[in-house]
Amino acid sequence: MGVEPSEYGQVWRFFILALVPKGSLLMIEMQDVWKEYRNGTKAINGISVKIDQGEFVYVVGPSGAGKSTFIKLMYREERPTRGHIFVNGFNIGRLKDRKVPLLRRNIGVVFQDFKLLPKLTAYENVAFALEVINTPRRVIRKRVMDVLDWVGLADKAHMLPSQLSGGEQQRVAIARAIANNPSVIIADEPTGNLDPDTSWGIMKLFQRINDRGTTIVMATHNKEIVNTMRKRVIAIERGVIVRDEPKGLYGYED
C-alpha cells in the first residue's frame, strides 16, 4: 500500500470537527421517499432514514433491490416521485436545476468504473474537477498535489489512467472526490472491480476519510469487507429498508 503520506493541509479539519461532537448533526434524511421510473419500475417504495454527520454506512441488498436508486437520490441524479430528502441542508425534492451544482460540490462520488478521463494524467483528472467549478489556478495546484499525496499517488501524478493499476485508478477517483473537501462521500460499489487485496487498501482509504469526519455512504456487495470492517448496515430489498443495524453484518449468502 506504500508509505502513509503526511496529512499536511488537512490538519485544520480536525480542529473544526473536534468542536462538533461526532454524530450530532443530521447529514442525510429521507422521509417516506418513493421513486417510480417513467417506465413504471417501482425502485423505492417508502423509505425513511437518517444518517448523521461522520457516520460510515454500508448499503447492501440483492441486485435490482433499489440500492443504486437509493444512492442516486442523494446526489439528485434521480428525483423522488414522493417524499422529502435533505442532504447537507439541501431540500433535494425542491432543489432548482441551477442549484444542483451547489449540492454536488458538497458531495464526492466514487464509482465502480472509476470514471476517469483516459487522456488526462492522474494530476489532470483531479485538477479537472476543480477547474470546472472555477477554483483559482494556484489553489488547484496545491490542492491536487495534497490529495494525490494523501491517497499515496504523489509519485504517479503524471501517469495516464492506462498506466495505473485498477486500485491506483480508484485512488485517483477518490482523490478527485475529496479534492473539494465535501461533507459526504457517496460510493457505488467502489471495490466491485478490484481484487481482495486491493479492495482492502481502498477500504482503508475510506476509513481514513471517515476519520477526518466525512460522512460515507457506500453501496457494496463485498461480504468479507462488511463483516470485517463493522459499520452501520442498511439492507434494501424490493425498494424498502428491511434491516438497519449499527455494526451490522452483510447478511446474504453470495
Partner: peptide, 17 residues
C-alpha cells in the same frame, strides 16, 4: 460525454458546461 458526465457530477454549473 464522459467529460460532461464528470463535470455534472463534480458540480460544474450548467452554463459552464
Amino acid at each position: 460525454r464522459r467529460e460532461i458526465e464528470i463535470m455534472k457530477l463534480v458540480g460544474a454549473t450548467n452554463w459552464f458546461i
